[in-house]
C-alpha cells in the first residue's frame, strides 16, 4: 500500500501548493455557506435541509474540477511513463489518485463543520438539534463524492486535455445525478431502475439518517466501476 499512499501524498501536497486549491476550496465554502445560512435568515429555520438538497449539485461541479488534472496532466507532461514503469500495478496509481481527491473533499467537508455547529447552536433551547440527518448527510456526501471522483478520474484518464476531462466528468456526474428526475416520463418498472441508478436518490435516503445496505452497495459499485474503468483506460494508454 505504500506506493498508493506515496502517490496520494504527492498529489495532495501538489494540490495545496497551487493557488487553484485555495480558489476551489474557497468557492466551495462560500457556496455551501450560502446554502447553510440561506435557510437560517430567509426562512428563519435552523436546518441543514437546504444545504443537503443543494450539496449534490455542488459536487457535480466540484468533483470533476478536482479530478480533471489528476491523470490528464500526467499524460500531458509525460510523467505517466515514469509512474507506469515503476514496479507497481496500474490500479495502485489509480487508487492513489482517488485517495488524494477523496482526502481533499473530506478536508473541504471538514471546513463546513463550523456551519453545521453554528446551526445546531442556533436551534431553540426547548427543541434539540437532530444530529441523525446531519451525520447521515455528511456520510452520504462523502460516499457520493467518492463515486463522483471515480467517474471524474475516468474522464481525466481519457485524454491529455484537462478541460476535456472536466467536461466529460461533469456530464457523467450530472447524468447520475439527474437520472431519477427522468423517471416520471417512464413506465414504473423502468422508473425504479432509473431511480436506483441515481446518486441523488440514494443520497436522500442516507441524508434522512437511515443507513440502508442497498444505498451503500450502490455507492461502492459505482465507485468501483469508475476505478476499474480508469485502470483499464490507463492500461490501454500504454503504447
Amino acid at each position: 500500500m505504500s506506493a498508493v499512499t506515496a502517490i496520494a501524498k504527492r498529489e495532495i501536497r501538489s494540490f495545496f501548493n497551487s493557488p487553484m486549491a485555495y480558489i476551489t476550496l474557497g468557492v466551495f465554502l462560500l457556496l455551501s455557506g450560502y446554502f447553510y445560512f440561506n435557510t437560517l435568515f430567509l426562512v428563519g429555520q435552523a436546518s441543514l435541509r437546504e444545504f443537503f438538497n443543494l450539496a449534490p449539485l455542488l459536487f457535480v461541479v466540484f468533483a470533476p474540477a478536482l479530478t480533471m488534472r489528476l491523470l490528464a496532466e500526467e499524460r500531458k507532461a509525460g510523467t505517466i511513463e515514469l509512474l507506469l514503469t515503476m514496479p507497481i500495478r496500474d490500479s495502485h496509481v489509480v487508487f492513489g489518485k482517488f485517495l488524494a481527491a477523496l482526502v481533499i473533499v473530506a478536508i473541504g467537508l471538514l471546513l463546513t463543520l463550523p456551519y453545521a455547529l453554528s446551526v445546531a447552536n442556533l436551534t431553540a433551547n426547548n427543541s434539540s438539534f437532530d444530529w441523525g440527518p446531519a451525520v447521515g448527510g455528511y456520510l452520504g456526501l462523502l460516499l457520493m463524492a467518492a463515486s463522483f471522483i471515480a467517474l471524474g478520474l475516468w474522464a481525466s484518464s481519457l485524454s491529455r486535455n484537462q478541460i476535456v476531462g472536466f467536461i466529460i466528468g461533469l456530464l457523467l456526474c450530472f447524468a447520475f445525478y439527474i437520472i431519477d428526475r427522468t423517471a416520471v416520463f417512464l413506465p414504473a418498472s423502468m422508473g425504479s431502475v432509473f431511480e436506483f441508478l441515481s446518486v441523488d436518490y440514494h443520497f436522500r435516503n442516507i441524508a434522512r439518517g437511515v443507513l440502508d445496505t442497498r444505498d451503500l452497495i450502490f455507492y461502492f459499485s459505482l465507485t468501483g466501476a469508475g476505478l476499474l474503468l480508469t485502470t483499464r483506460t490507463l492500461a490501454s494508454s500504454r503504447q
Binding site: 501536497r13 509525460g78 514503469t85 515503476m86 514496479p87 507497481i88
Partner: peptide
C-alpha cells in the same frame, strides 16, 4: 521492473517538486 532503472528519452519530471521531495517520492514508490 524492480530490477530496472529507467531514464526515458524526454526525462519527464514533476516540475513543481523540489529535488529532495521528488527523490523521496520515488523512494516511497520503490
Amino acid at each position: 521492473r524492480q530490477n530496472i532503472g529507467y531514464l526515458t528519452e524526454s526525462n519527464p519530471l514533476y516540475e513543481e517538486m523540489m529535488v529532495k521531495e521528488y527523490l523521496d517520492f520515488i523512494a516511497e514508490i520503490r
